[in-house]
Amino acid sequence: MSSDTLNNEPAIKTHIPDSFEDGQGCTPNNIKISVKDLNFFYGIRQVLFDISLNIYDKKVTAFIGPSGCGKSTFLRTLNRMNDIIEGTRHNGDILIDGNDIYAEKVNLVELRKKVGMVFQRSNPFPKSVFENVAYGPRIHGIKNKSELDDIVEKSLKNAGLWEEVKDRLTSNALALSGGQQQRLCIARALAIDPEILLMDEPASALDPKSTTRVEDLISELKENYTIVIVTHSMQQAARVSDYTAFFYEGDLVEFDKTKKIFTMPAKKQTEDYITGRFG
């Protein structure tokens, strides 16, 4: 880990539950994103209350909770996508690699290059498969055709889509199946070489088979990326994630290892939710 992360160690340490330092590689050194006392408002309506948690490097962290609990809003604060909504504001800190992403001098282009995003509804551009994946690199100034070719191939391979689309790179992305479109969106996000991948219910609009493919993909991708996934499905959270955060009405009720959350939740509310008593 870089040294500037280490410098933040004292500040971060207070937010780590003791149970995390259990010799499984979850010491403060692995913290990728650190959120401290985050409050978030749409106009005068507060939707997130004092959220503090750490997201670990090259792990999958799942956000679960009933609709409207603020989990998607929270996800979108991590790459500042909420900025485009008028009348939003926040207080508290979000540090990525120890740097405050809401600081004055932050370059949004660099931030979003580092923190990729996949949306709930697959949203490929109405362009060719190739142009979809090449869009990000082009935006960031890559013009060389062979370089773009390489990036497109590598990204599609990483998204497990290359074999299916390598002969139809020039056909319109909207002609692909729903599951393929979603993996294309993942490839598009990977093409700008992010370190963190935010996924907002990436499989909620997919059939079971495509869902399995995306879940397998997530497991592969965590080798190289830090993944944060919002999901409605508790089974999905249990299957793919290492850590789980349970949100309810804007509060972070509980955050722990996924295994612990699903077997021995500390809070009654969490237990009620995961056992299906509400939500």
């Binding site: 996508m81 282009v109 660099e110 979003r112 509804r121 949203n123 551009f125 969106c185 598009r188 996000a189």
Partner: peptide, 20 residues
């Protein structure tokens, strides 16, 4: 959703307007 995808990829508002 197209605009969001573009912005999330680090495109500026102007780039999003002209390219998407």
């Amino acid at each position: 959703s197209y605009k969001q995808a573009s912005i999330a990829l680090g495109a500026s508002k102007l780039q999003t307007i002209w390219r998407v």
